[in-house]
Design a protein around this nucleic acid. Sequence first.
RNA 1: GCCGACGUAGCUCAGGGGUAGAGCACUUCCUUGGUAAGGAAGAGGUCAUGGGUUCAAAUCCCAUUGUUGGCUCCA
Length: 643
Amino acid sequence: MINITLPDGSVRQYDKGISSMQIAISISEGLARNVLAAEVDGQVWDASRPIEQDAKIKLLTWNDTLGKNTFWHSSAHLMAEALEALYPGTKFGIGPPLKEQPGFYYDVDFGDRDFSSDDFKQIEDKVLELAKAKSEYIRKPVSKANAIEYFTEKGDEYKLDLIKDLPDGSITFYTQGNFTDLCRGPHIPNTGFIKAVKLTSVAGAYWRGDETRKQLTRIYAVTFPKQSELTDYLQLIEEAKKRDHRKLGKELELFAFSEKVGMGLPLWLPKGAALRERLVRFMQTAQVKAGYEQVITPHIGHKNLYVTSGHYEKYGKDSFQPIQTPQEGEEFFLKPMNCPHHCEIYKTKPRSYKDLPVRYAEFGTVYRYEQSGELHGLTRVRGFTQDDAHLFCRPDQVKDEFKKVIDLVLYVFSALGFEDYTAQISLRDPENKAKYIGSDENWALAEQSIIEAAAEKGLRTVVELGEAAFYGPKLDFMVKDALGRKWQLGTIQVDYNLPERFELEYTGSDNQKHRPVMIHRAPFGSLERFVAVLIEHCAGNFPLWLSPEQFTILPISEKYEEYAKKLSDILKDSDICGLIDFRDEKIGRKIRDAEVKKIPYMLIVGEKETAEGLVSVRKHGQGDLGSMTIEEFKQRIIKEITV
RNA sequence: GCCGACGUAGCUCAGGGGUAGAGCACUUCCUUGGUAAGGAAGAGGUCAUGGGUUCAAAUCCCAUUGUUGGCUCCA
């Protein structure tokens, strides 16, 4: 007998060699029907795999991330089986589940065959047909020699390339129906769990991400255990398309791009600029309260600045092109980050330990050469403005300062309606230290302070190795938007290296020179990216305090324009922004246009309102709110803005 | 940067070897109206740019440029 510990802590006894599925059956039939795999002592196993010793197990269903991953991984095998059945001779690369979104892909080599989205339907039909056969996924350990023999005979050089790097004794095959794949597993019990499938896109991807190797066809797809979940998923995709900030940005006249100005260089239109200005003012107010001082630095910097900072060495060759002065032959670069400039500000005078922390904030516009294929709307651009600040503090202040920055970031998120977030702690890849600058000791200190500060603030965190910046570890905030999509926004980074490189100092209470620690932080990340995420989060229906046009006055006819102007002036005096629709159109039309433009409040004025000194108020998306005096309306707006 | 798709009026898009089409937006006129599109007329395009094939190119070919889906990258 062996002891099986369940997640609730209860221990049950079973015969040696029992499978997770049998355990599930012993608990409840209903549970067993939903079990996709099981976590056994921290490893995900097939539900059918025999357990030979005492273990802690967790049964995985569709509700678990690991359960979903297993489901999609198994789906990838099923799609491969369908592809092989439809297009014999197809060679297979890898077919994993996706990390950030639902679904999976399989990289395949069709040889000379053309493949396009026109073939999707045929494949989906075949997948469903094979799924109905309820073929079991059968695990089989094989020797390296046998594995090589199998795929040599099959002529699949990609699998052979993978096997080459695997140690003998660790290799397993999985077979379902007529398809056998090299695979570590685990898999769902049988193909019958897969009830709905949709191929989502096709794209090229190099074998093992190496552009010198052959390009394979990557087929993206998503599967579900219920048809209704696929329907929901497709609806979500539709909704996401409607909220695309590139589409809304154009429709709402927030920003634009111009071929002549250059790719990745956004032009802020009046309404977008108004929105952005409000965000800036909001942040400035918060920062003043938090003890920051505003600074301003130039858009270019001397090459030596970046040689000192280390950025030149790291990015100089492919990212920076120098600007040369005609006479002296000096070299300048467009500012790609603000930190070196702020270090020089720190150095303008001697500092005492009593002066620290010093907090310099700047809405600094920076320019970076991003690969052309990587540009995307406002989320990835070549010129953008960071809500940047650099804190210079004593080592004993780091954790406290870091925690204050976390507070600020969370304040910003809550003010803008991002309720759901996690924090990602990005550390150095211990296997590849050459990628980073700075001493081991400083890295250890920096990593430690981030981990402790996040823990003390009770943040939900995940740790990612190898995701740190080259000069220091960071804490990135990932927010979930209204559709449940994750975005990386704010970032906080601890840096022991730049102070070293710029030889920053302060005089301690011991009258000795000491090195301050630097914290980089940007709660929005960049205004461009933040606005993009905000647009998609609220679908263009900004909170009232951010709306570029908070109201529009709609006169029923030109007879009431004088009254409309009077109202408009009253609102303007209270810093409430809006326009009057003077067009010679019927009221229904004016309302419709205002609704389409997502203007929060419509003030309708006609004979009745003019006579009684009222306004008829209509709210976007809600409809008629009835009449009130302009003063009542003003109070309503002020109340809504301050909440 | 690499691979694929795309670029037609301000916007959304149709068409397609014989010198351009719709809807919306715009302008003018009629209409002076009550909570999501009133009516009529008009104006607007070197069909991304450059080159080639052809009697003839917006259409076919090549290059460039931009957008886009991926890959790689992200200070």
